[in-house]
Simulated assay, not measured.
Amino acid sequence: MPAASSSTTASAFLFPAFKYIPSIPTEIAPTTEGNTADLKTFVRAFLLPERLHHLHHSLPHSKQADMTRVPALTSHFSGAMDINYSPTVLICGHGGRDMRCGVMAPALEAEFQRVLRASGFTSAGSDGGGVDGPHHANVGLISHVGGHKYAGNIIVYIPPKMTVRGASAAAEAEPHPLAGKGIWYGRVEPKHVQGIVDETVLKGRVVKDHFRGGIDRSGDILRL
């Protein structure tokens, strides 16, 4: 998402790393000398793989190094923060090849914002002042996630430290059963949003009728 302060920077949520980067240069510097952070620095710090597939082992070491993540470069992004408490709902809004997701997405975004607010999340969507907190939820549109025939497509990311209510009113909060995981749903319509928020976000249960897959923080695929 473009940052309000400058047209040459952007912000990003990174999943399943559960991180938020508030300021990312959108240009590539003409030289790699010095300590200037640019878009390439961001890619090498956060997006490249930590290790390569064995099929790449025949490449020169210098080429392998260029294709591998460099964690030390994260120091260029001092504003990066962990998303520990706020659930994030990402909705496919792709409308290029097939309009089904593009048409469905705005209605789903509005309904998720409405239901989450009614469920006690005081700030949801892009109008809130923060991105992480026990009573905050992030809702936004993303590009294609696969399968127009499954529109609407959504991914619900449950942060690592999110909790659920205990069995009784007096019971202490318990770790969320889906903490640190992303759950991918398909064929979601606005009428299904209340159930997804109630079951998945608030109770940690997967809605099997809409389940398309999932992922945990290590990148492993989740299946029912």
Results as ranks from 00 to 15, higher is better:
102 G>Y: 10
100 R>I: 02
75 S>T: 15
88 T>G: 02
115 V>K: 05
84 N>S: 13
140 G>R: 09
78 S>P: 01
158 I>W: 00
145 V>F: 12
97 R>H: 07
95 G>M: 04
109 E>N: 04
100 R>Y: 02
122 T>C: 02
148 H>S: 10
93 G>N: 12
115 V>E: 14
134 P>Q: 06
79 G>Y: 10
101 C>F: 09
80 A>V: 15
74 T>Y: 00
155 I>D: 07
78 S>W: 04
153 N>V: 10
144 H>M: 01
117 R>N: 14
134 P>C: 04
100 R>E: 02
70 V>A: 13
158 I>D: 11
87 P>Y: 09
121 F>N: 03
76 H>G: 02
150 Y>E: 06
146 G>P: 07
73 L>Y: 06
157 Y>S: 08
148 H>A: 02
138 N>T: 13
87 P>C: 03
132 D>I: 10
106 P>M: 14
95 G>A: 14
158 I>F: 09
90 L>W: 14
116 L>C: 05
114 R>Y: 07
161 K>N: 11
74 T>K: 15
106 P>N: 13
164 V>P: 07
77 F>R: 09
97 R>A: 03
109 E>A: 10
149 K>R: 12
134 P>D: 08
108 L>T: 09
106 P>Q: 12
88 T>I: 07
82 D>K: 15
136 H>F: 04
98 D>Q: 07
123 S>Q: 15
114 R>I: 01
97 R>K: 11
117 R>P: 02
138 N>L: 10
108 L>A: 10
89 V>P: 03
117 R>L: 10
93 G>Y: 03
105 A>Y: 08
98 D>A: 03
76 H>K: 14
117 R>Y: 05
157 Y>E: 02
113 Q>G: 07
